[in-house]
Nucleic acid binder design. Structure first.
Lengths: 216, 216
DNA sequence: CCTTCCCGACCGATCGATCGCTCGGTCGGG
DNA sequence: CCCGACCGAGCGATCGATCGGTCGGGAAGG
């Protein structure tokens, strides 16, 4: 019913936030995710979800209480995963605002390139969540946005970034990183890591950060 | 049934692409748009659409052949409107690539700030379109994207822009302009024109264009 | 001028299909 | 022999769409 298994290993100061080798979802949820991607939440029937999971309809209900519960579980996993990775990336970055910007950007792009389906549903099926779950989800999204807000505002206050509109730039930067999930597919010519490198540069230019390539 | 009324006035060389005083949709489509926004296409019932339009269910079917036809009409209007405005903006911009970048950015932001609902549905209900309409819609979207691609690539070739990845930057810039529709509401503190001004500056920084504020 | 008729706009009632979900089971491993 | 995992059949509700109308206003005919 609810999410089982807390975050497995919280090895401090590691760069585990770059590791996407473990599948993020149990098989049933993964099958549901792919079906939601293709038809949307309301456009997906319970029978489709059961078939995608290789189960009968009652078999599916044995594992999840409702169609809504499937969506909630997917969205919670997505937001929790990105949140943990972002926190870990910022912890690794230390106090240098440029490095904080770089690693947070890299984290955002890596996540949206490695898990485009997860990010897509979490971003676009918000309306399909029932009121209580939607509130929780929106709060998590705002909290996530605030990470970038803090970095950009701090960097601007320190005079390291040179944008006249830090709040707008922060939102724009997150938007363009999040947008990766709408078109990137792992079969593309660019690996997630390569793409992240490019976005780090683009983000630096957008916020007006110094462009030296020193290993931050 | 089909879209009536071609573009009203094609006064060449005007900046009519900045004019959002005319309602973009007939009342029935506008009511449908608002309902789709709230519940999504598949989450909206024909009875909700009829009620929103102030009609009975057969009354609604008298004007539109199906629920799908409503969505198609909305999406076609959205894409055609943005396309015409973009063409007009670029025509007014002339040959200067910086000015072309500025006006196209302004056009994108103005559209997504003035018509967030229209843009939101056109961008997010793509999956809900039937195969043939979806193909048309995707072609229109790619054509729209290509406008920015051409500007950024040309500016980079001319050495006026200084981004190392023009294609990625073009996509990122369009993404962040399009993203305006996901959060901007006309009641905000910033007018669409003010927001566009900020995005023009942000876009210039992202592509590495000269930042002089000369009246281009 | 009045009457007739037609047609676009609209609606109450209801169609068959399908929806999310549940009941009462079966079955195999411990 | 019990229990978790699973399923065939089917529940009431609601879906998108349709049928056979009503109604008002304007053109046509006398």
């Amino acid at each position: 019913m609810s999410l089982s298994g807390t975050v497995n290993e919280t090895s401090e100061a590691g760069s585990d936030w770059r590791d996407f080798s473990h599948p993020p979802l149990p098989p049933i949820l993964d099958a549901a995710l792919m079906t939601f991607i293709e038809h949307g939440y309301h456009g997906t029937t319970i029978r489709q979800l059961a078939a995608a999971a290789g189960l009968s309809v009652p078999g599916l209900y044995h594992h999840y209480a409702s169609k809504q519960a499937l969506l909630v579980a997917i969205c919670e996993t997505a937001m929790a995963d990105l949140w943990e990775r972002s926190r870990s990336a910022l912890a690794q970055a230390g106090d240098d605002v440029v490095r904080r910007l770089d690693l947070l950007t890299e984290c955002l792009v890596l996540f949206h390139a490695h898990r485009p389906e997860l990010a897509f549903i979490a971003a676009n099926e918000l309306r399909s969540l029932q009121a209580d779950a939607r509130e929780t989800h929106i709060a998590a999204r705002d909290r996530q946005q605030r990470l970038m807000d803090d970095v950009v505002v701090t960097g601007t206050e320190q005079g390291v970034f040179s944008t006249p509109y830090p709040r707008d730039v922060s939102r724009a930067v997150v938007t363009m990183c999040t947008g990766v999930a709408q078109w990137y597919r792992p079969r593309g010519e660019l690996s997630p890591a390569d793409l992240a490198t490019r976005y780090v540069i683009m983000t630096r230019m957008t916020v007006g950060a110094p462009m030296d390539v020193a290993a931050r």
